[in-house]
Simulated scan of single mutants.
Amino acid sequence: MSDSIEKKGIIELLSAMIMMGTVGLFVVESGQSAYNVVFYRCTLGAIFLLAYCLYSGKLKNTGINTKKLIIIIFSAIFLVFNWVMLFASFKTASISTSTVIYHAQPFFFILIWALAFKEAVSLNKILWMGLAFIGVTLVADINTNEFSLSSDYILGVSLALLAAIFWAASATLVKLLTGVSTYLITLIQLFVGIIVLFPFSDLSGITDVTVKQWSYLLVLGAVHTCLTYILMYSSYQKLSAPVIAVMTFIYPAVAIFVDFYFYNESMSVIQIAGVFMIMFSSYAVNQNLSFLSLKKINASA
């Protein structure tokens, strides 16, 4: 692969990760409930993505059949409710805390895949998972003296963890799909999201949504959903797995900056230590590093 192609892929993925990191800002500033935000995101995202697919011919030779369609529909249900829970957590915990905890999703994917297909999880991965979840508890920074299951903060942390689990369930189903266009998968997921979320969304106040709020929702649909996925899918074809793994950490880093810059939400030293635990554990699992020696181990081990 030439350097120019790789550089283009890096720019595409960098742009996508920066956009992803700003999702929380647009969700909060839209002033809508989590259900409404995701409904509008699916609706606007589907419109823009369908237009792009029709223009670029991405819907040719889709490789779809009835069985695969059913899998996509179930993956869509997990995906859209993952968004609902994540967006709700932004308003009850914080954008930075929720995003970092949500970034533990690869570990839930490993666990769900292992349980679903009765595959053993290596001791090495279990150790990295343990370190990551210690990081989650540090990032959550729960005050045991004021602990209450009914508190908004605990609810936000719990929603971020559930969102990660739902994302992992959706990713597990998508991994079963072979020979199906990724653009078609995303498009079907968005249309399913519109149908599934319509009964939960309160659209009675649609005329009360301000122009400024509509602009945030429009960006969520056109940029954070359509453009971001286009850039990610394009970059994946140009970059190696290690480069992709490292660059995904830009997403939570941007979210932490956004939370600090716009809402003056900063993390304590303990929380920052937790962030590094989660991020490095995720990288180590992706790169198949040994927990003890930090050297790559045989993938079949």
Rank of each mutant, 00 (worst) to 15 (best):
A168F: 01
E146A: 15
I71G: 00
L231D: 07
S89G: 10
I244K: 09
I230W: 03
F48T: 15
L239W: 11
A169H: 03
S170C: 10
T144G: 10
M277H: 03
L25C: 10
V27D: 06
A169Y: 05
P199Y: 06
Y216R: 01
C53I: 00
L59H: 04
A116W: 06
P199H: 09
L289Y: 04
T178A: 08
F166C: 12
T228Q: 12
M279S: 12
M129I: 06
L177T: 02
W83G: 03
K175L: 03
T22F: 14
T66H: 10
T66E: 07
M232L: 12
L115R: 05
T99C: 13
I194S: 04
W83K: 09
E6H: 12
Y233A: 07
A120W: 11
F200Y: 06
A132P: 02
I112Q: 04
S240M: 09
L227G: 06
T225G: 09
V84I: 08
Q189S: 07
V84N: 04
A93E: 14
M277Y: 13
L190Q: 02
L69A: 14
G9K: 09
I134C: 11
V209K: 09
I110Q: 01
G135Q: 09
Q105F: 12
S158W: 11
Y233N: 12
G45Y: 00
T66C: 13
K60P: 00
P106I: 00
V80L: 02
I297M: 14
N288Y: 09
T228S: 10
T43I: 07
M17P: 08
K60N: 10
F200S: 05
F26E: 02
S15P: 13
N36V: 10
L218H: 06
S293K: 14
T97Q: 14
N264F: 13
I73K: 02
I112W: 03
A245T: 12
L159I: 11
M129D: 02
M129T: 00
K238L: 14
L220M: 12
S170P: 03
V180L: 07
T92V: 12
V246S: 13
F74P: 01
N298S: 13
V38Q: 05
M1P: 12
L69T: 13
V246Y: 11
I5N: 15
I250Y: 04
M277W: 08
S293I: 09
Y229I: 03
F108M: 11
M20K: 03
Q189R: 01
I195W: 07
S98E: 05
Y263R: 01
Y102W: 15
L138M: 14
Y40E: 03
A46N: 08
M129K: 04
L50R: 08
Y35C: 02
L14N: 13
L159R: 10
Q271Y: 06
L69G: 08
I134D: 11
I154M: 14
F191M: 11
G45C: 01
Y283V: 10
Q271T: 12
S4K: 13
S300D: 14
C42T: 02
A241L: 05
G135H: 05
G130C: 08
G57K: 08
